[in-house]
Design a protein around this nucleic acid. Structure first.
Lengths: 133, 133
DNA sequence: GTAATTGCAAAAATTTTGCCTCATA
DNA sequence: TATGAGGCAAAATTTTTGCAATTAC
């Protein structure tokens, strides 16, 4: 028997707040965002809902941050780019051209997903660097 | 005055053991490997050395694991592929064909690095799945 | 009414750090 | 011999979990 899931206020607000932004927040940041609407929500509930929504494929977990998990409300195919100066994570929508069939043949793996993450210096930090010189 | 680094037995063995394998071990796994040669080494020392070696670009930190940091003694350009069944991380050497210059123009970022990680089902798990049917 | 979910707090798990001693250069 | 590094253990940080009460269906 499959476990049913219910739509609670908490789950709904966690999802809504995550889908509002493109900042790829950590669980802690989501907690802060959600608390403005539900002051009594607990951090554990935020964690549990993020985990469940990710399992259901409604949101995505990002391993891009060295120390904490980040979450993305946008599940469409896109890449990320993190600024090595300020740490922010932006979206990149490029059409990638890796030949998955060839990869399957080369590796013997059945490829089910991929993650491409870019690192660089964002426009803001680049201009700051120019100013500082 | 730049801080000098010394070549200690511990640092040497951590590096050697990491470079011996292609299994992308966690700090804990490196600790176990190193302890066979240096039974008195402490986990803190392993962490400190892995961190330092990564800073110096001699090894690489991998964010591919959901829960812990993994380390890679191979710093040449290659991708990783993780089996979603058994969790192991293999190397993939493919020649990727992303146009970095175009990306810089599109995003405004100065691209300094990238990470491509693939997920799939490894040959072993694929054949196990066939057997189970 | 039943079972999923919450809030709270304690626990778990990983990583970092302080401090004193040791050893490299 | 000066100072970087190690060992040990405590602390810090992030995430998970047990439990009794609550709520969605």
């Amino acid at each position: 028997m499959i476990k049913q899931t219910r739509i609670t206020k908490q789950r709904q607000v966690v999802l809504e707040e995550l889908q509002k932004v493109t900042t790829h927040p950590t669980a802690d940041m989501v907690y802060d965002m959600v608390r403005k609407r539900l002051p009594n929500i607990s951090l554990g509930t935020v964690y549990r809902n993020l985990e469940l929504l990710a399992e259901q494929g409604i949101i995505r977990k990002l391993n891009i941050d060295e120390h904490k998990m980040r979450f993305d409300g946008n599940t469409s195919n896109h890449f990320h780019i993190q600024c090595i100066e300020c740490g922010k994570v932006d979206d990149v929508s490029i059409c990638e051209n890796i030949d998955w069939l060839e990869l399957t043949q080369d590796t013997g793996y059945e490829i089910t997903g991929h993650r491409i993450e870019l690192f660089g210096i964002c426009p803001d930090c680049r201009s700051k660097q120019l100013q500082d010189q």
